[in-house]
Amino acid sequence: MSLFWRIFLPNATVLALAALLLLGPVTVSTPVNLGEAVVIGAGAAVMLGANAVVLRMSLAPLERLAAAMTGVDPMHPGARMRVTGPGEVAHLIGTFNTMVDRLETERAASRANALSAQEGERRRVAQELHDEVGQTLTAVLLQLKHTADRAEPPLRDDLRLAQETTRTGLDEIRRIARRLRPGVLEELGLASALRALTTEIGTPGLTVRRELAPHLPPLDPQTELVVYRVAQEALTNVARHAEADRAVISLRPVGAGAVELVVVDNGRGIGSAAAGTGISGMRERALLIGAELAVGPGAAGGTEVHLRVPVHTRSTT
Rank of each mutant, 00 (worst) to 15 (best):
L155Q: 13
V184C: 04
T165W: 12
A193I: 07
E224D: 08
E187Y: 11
S280M: 15
Q232L: 11
T199K: 15
L235M: 10
E233R: 01
A244N: 06
T223E: 10
A258L: 06
A258D: 06
R167G: 07
I176A: 11
G267V: 01
V263C: 03
A193R: 01
L197E: 11
L206Q: 06
H215Q: 15
T236R: 15
A193C: 07
T207L: 09
T277S: 14
G271M: 00
R210G: 10
G267Y: 02
G169F: 05
I270Y: 06
S250A: 09
R268F: 03
T165K: 14
L216Y: 10
A274D: 14
Q222I: 08
L206E: 05
H215T: 13
G267C: 06
H215L: 15
S272R: 07
P253W: 06
A244K: 03
R181Q: 02
E243T: 03
R246D: 00
Q232V: 08
A258Y: 04
L180H: 01
T199Q: 13
I201K: 10
A213H: 09
S280E: 12
E233M: 04
I270W: 04
A196S: 13
R167K: 10
E186F: 03
T199P: 05
I173D: 05
E211N: 10
L185R: 04
I249W: 01
G205A: 06
E211G: 08
R156K: 14
I270K: 07
G169K: 08
R246Q: 11
P214H: 12
A258K: 04
E164R: 13
A244E: 03
R246P: 02
R175N: 12
P204T: 07
S272P: 10
A275S: 12
E187S: 14
T198D: 07
R209I: 09
S192N: 09
G255I: 00
V254L: 15
L212F: 07
T277A: 13
V264W: 03
P253N: 07
V263Y: 01
V208L: 11
I176T: 12
R174L: 11
S272I: 11
T203I: 08
L161E: 15
S280T: 14
Q222D: 10
R175D: 12
A177Y: 01
A247H: 03
L159V: 09
R175S: 13
R252Q: 13
A193S: 05
V259W: 05
L180I: 05
S250E: 06
R160G: 08
